[in-house]
Write a protein that binds this DNA or RNA. Structure first.
Lengths: 351, 351
DNA sequence: TTGAAAGCGCTACCAA
DNA sequence: TTGGTAGCGCTTTCAA
């Protein structure tokens, strides 16, 4: 209270097309065309309009443009989480690809919860996006229904193998789990366990887990020992889970982790318990986080092609918008073999 | 070609308010009020409208709402980069705070480039956001001008101490640099260097660097040795810079890194060269990344209150929008002391 | 090459 | 408690 006008700043918006038109002395839609189809105007007029546009710092109102135009310039993107940065690089590559064609990305988070995912999808759909991209291939039926009814291109990222709503770009997570286990077996580890965060609705994590079991079965071994939790996967969780695992299954000598962050904690806890890596125990991660090559021992991990997934998603969206059909792509990943599984490459039978 | 209709999916949008109204047999704006002010309708009518809304899967068109309404429901956010996840936690906390009040976040990236930052700000302003938040306090003058003219609340995050456009929530980066150096000196390291990515327009990094120099000067020591680069800060860069540093300044025994990722590479390179940490060299990072506590030796680092910065930014934006005045907050950070600087806590003079 | 007019789907205000 | 009406700033026809 007092003499001030009170209240926050008054949004002034910028100049409107009509104001620019009035200043130049032409009609509103001549200015509009000066922006969208400059070649249809006399150069002289175009020059005067450009000058006015510049002078008034005209910034096109995309809200108005979207409402009036036939297509929106927004793409909705739903990721599980940005926090653990699993998907930050995917989003960045996607946004870069889209921005080049003047599409804005709108981000939503599911926090690994189907209800929140549905909420995020609904909220984004309210902005009438031209397309949507989301992490995962298995969704709550409300999500599939809403997305199907929206009648826009939808790209499901990161996973493949489920029933795609429209298009998909991802990895075969069962194969990844299998590869984790096969790598451990090839290095001579026989008692393989799975450690990590396994949220009820994180289908990818469950698939990798299943892949590990498949590989063990194929090798004539029993079920993998499991130490999982629905908590977010961080080093502390890894430490707690491995402690619990070793108490129950002291024979474990190979650990497939559901994320590198968890693997960091696993390595630390093994060290604290005097278990040598890779001599006594082999550890393989998932995600190839930035620090993984700098740990001691350096962590063997699965590297997902994050930037490629983001880039391909952008490409598919743009192509779909121009009339191309849906596509489903499986992208390749690889295992970066480092010291944490460097016990030797021949299968040595236990004494 | 072929028999198909060709073309991508036809965006069908959802049902409109008018369609719902027609179905119930009331006027369009009665339905609008059923959504925004339900208590002003007869319960019976409200029930019928709710049923129709549900049956037609009505999703309000936020584009139309923003254009017609007095205020937009968007907040623009510009970060330097998501990729190195420096700001992912800030954005997530900010988005959570805003979403609770039904504001959508629109993200832009500057990639540590003033021109791209200006481009991102301009692009976001086109959506007529209700407010903007951006990383950094020192901006290209075009950015300050555009933001000032927009007449909306603007919160500058992460840094403080410059001339704020409107509001700010951040840390004193000079003090952080000073603290890094003082910590090293307190642990008995005498020849302190700065290693890391120093992009021309990353004012925060420059301030931390200046802080280190100040602390050395205050202790009667000379300028810090510098090994910096404009490349993105990752472990490989850290490794290369420290190799170059030790070639030029073999006497260095304390290293202040501009990010934890760089520090990871520094630790690895020191190990490869047979320099023991913390005995021969002390290393302190910035950012407290997830892996830092799991390295060997565990990395001493400065921990920024990322979630708090995001949350406070959301609070300030919401308050500003309700008429509160601008605020400038400096938030506290701390140094997590770990093994990489654990040489002892008394200053021991070199022999 | 330019202008006029009709909406896009909604909110805000007024009248009933 | 409800309905009518005038825009928001632009794109998109169509006519001049």
């Amino acid at each position: 209270m007092g003499q001030g006008a009170g209240g926050g700043p008054q949004p002034r918006g910028g100049a409107t097309l009509a104001q620019v038109a009035a200043r130049v002395g032409v009609s509103l839609n001549t200015v509009s065309r000066a922006i969208r189809a400059p070649h249809t105007l006399r150069p002289e007029l175009l020059g005067r309009i450009a000058a006015a546009l510049d002078e008034l710092n005209y910034v096109p109102n995309r809200i108005a443009g979207s409402l009036a135009g036939t297509r929106s310039a927004l793409v909705g993107v739903v990721v599980s989480s940005l926090f653990h940065s699993e998907f930050a690089a995917v989003v960045e590559a996607l946004q870069t690809g889209l921005l080049a064609r003047d599409f804005q990305v709108m981000l939503g988070h599911s926090h690994y919860d189907p209800a929140r995912e549905a909420g995020a999808v609904r909220a984004l759909l309210g902005w009438r996006p031209a397309a949507m991209a989301l992490v995962g291939i298995d969704h709550h039926r409300d999500v599939s229904r809403m997305l199907g009814e929206a009648g826009i291109p939808v790209v499901q990222m990161w996973d493949v193998g489920g029933e795609a709503i429209d298009s998909a770009v991802g990895m075969d997570h069962v194969a990844i789990g299998r590869a984790q286990a096969e790598h451990l077996l090839a290095r001579g580890y026989r008692h393989v366990a799975v450690v990590g965060s396994l949220r009820p609705h994180d289908a990818r994590a469950h698939k990798r887990c299943r892949g590990v079991a498949q590989a063990l079965a194929a090798a004539g071994l029993g079920e993998p020992a499991l130490a999982t939790s629905a908590e977010p996967g961080d080093p502390d969780l890894g430490g707690r889970l491995v402690a619990e695992l070793l108490a129950r299954h002291p024979e474990v000598d190979g650990i497939a982790c559901n994320s590198d962050a968890v693997a960091y904690g696993v390595l630390r806890a093994l060290r604290a318990r005097g278990r040598r890596v890779p001599d006594d125990v082999g550890v393989v991660g998932f995600g190839d986080a930035e620090a993984s090559a700098c740990l001691v021992p350096a962590l063997t991990s699965v590297r997902p092609p994050r930037a490629a997934i983001g880039r391909l998603t952008a490409e598919i969206i743009l192509a779909r918008l121009e009339g191309a059909g849906p596509r489903q792509l499986e992208v390749a990943w690889d295992i970066l073999v480092r010291d944490s599984t460097a016990r030797g490459s021949t299968v040595s039978a236990p004494i």
